[in-house]
């Protein structure tokens, strides 16, 4: 009985794989079209999971798997990241030795701006992430940079996300700078290319394989991936940044993992965040 049921599911997977067959545009600098990508991705998930609202994808796997949603909603009633947000607020408001603070480094005093990250910096010719600017703020004011993956940087980021809840993601790819488009394309390519000894792309699990069990885990859909970061993961037992998760995923493909804030990861974040345009910021989040 159980076997037959899983067999039916297996067939669904085969059908789903069919749908992802190649488009013939959008894969080089001449043809890449971020807005078409974003719409195509929404369309893909709409057809995979017709019951789920696009807006709900900020809730990750719980947008498409009713079974685990209930448990998660209970968890969110007493969110495991609450302490981190409080700590983050305190850190955010603690002045540096020179009397300045994080509020001096960001637009609008750093409040309600999470949805604008990452962004393309024309001056520096690179993608800038929120965590990167938190550390730059420190260094520019004579403080030591924080470690990227967890701890204080994740807490500060969590507080900044908290003040931005329900703001709509609006990542821009400036038309007047080809390098921005190139960074987006690079991130897209990173997402879809198979790599590592296990020969896995991000898409293997998070597009085709989303909501299909790998042992007892259900991979989340890529749509809405970034909106809830930083995240408190039960598996970690702590709060972590998006790039901590990227390193972990990269390693899971048995690639030698890149370090957080590597250019490839920032470009990946740029691509993924653009895919979440139109969705709201809801970080920090909690996940299994």
């Amino acid at each position: 009985m159980k076997i037959i049921k899983t067999l039916a599911l297996g067939l669904t997977v085969a059908a789903a794989t069919q749908m992802t067959h190649a488009a013939d545009t959008g894969f080089d600098m001449q043809t890449v079209d971020p807005e078409a990508d974003r719409i195509a991705l929404q369309k893909y998930f709409k057809s995979r999971f017709p019951e789920s609202d696009i807006a709900d994808y900020v809730n990750g796997i719980y947008a498409v798997d009713a079974g685990s949603r209930e448990q998660w909603e209970e968890l969110e009633e007493f969110p495991p990241y609450e302490f981190d947000v409080e700590q983050g607020e305190e850190l955010f408001n603690t002045a540096f030795a020179n009397g300045k603070g994080y509020a001096d480094c960001f637009e609008n005093g750093g409040i309600g701006i999470r949805q604008n990250f990452p962004y393309w910096s024309k001056e520096e010719g690179t993608v800038k992430t929120l965590e990167q600017e938190i550390n730059e703020c420190r260094v520019n004011n004579g403080e030591e940079p924080l470690k990227w993956g967890k701890g204080a940087i994740a807490q500060i980021s969590a507080y900044m996300a908290w003040t931005s809840r329900d703001k709509v993601f609006d990542i821009k790819i400036p038309a007047d700078d080809e390098r921005a488009k190139a960074a987006y394309l690079d991130g897209k390519k990173f997402f879809y290319a198979k790599r590592g000894q296990l020969n896995l792309s991000c898409a293997n699990c998070h597009v085709q394989g989303s909501n299909i069990a790998i042992r007892a885990d259900l991979p989340s859909p890529q749509l809405g991936h970034v909106t809830h970061f930083p995240v408190f993961r039960s598996k970690w037992g702590s709060l972590g940044t998006l790039h901590r998760r990227y390193s972990g995923c990269h390693k899971d493909s048995r690639s030698k993992p890149l370090k957080p804030q590597a250019e490839e990861f920032r470009n990946l974040e740029y691509f993924q965040s653009y895919m979440s345009n139109g969705l709201v910021a809801n970080g920090p989040g909690s996940r299994k």
């Binding site: 749908m19 992802t20 067959h21 190649a22 488009a23 959008g26 894969f27 990508d37 195509a40 991705l41 369309k43 893909y44 897209k188 390519k189 879809y192 290319a193 198979k194 790599r195 000894q197 020969n199 792309s201 898409a203 293997n204 597009v207 085709q208």
Partner: peptide, 23 residues
């Protein structure tokens, strides 16, 4: 061998990464 196949994988990816992009 791992390194050699990794190089092959890189070249394959350059040509074929687009195959799994939803249209």
């Amino acid at each position: 061998y791992h390194a050699r196949i990794g190089i092959q994988q890189y070249h394959y990816a350059q040509k074929n990464w687009h195959l799994s992009v939803p249209e």
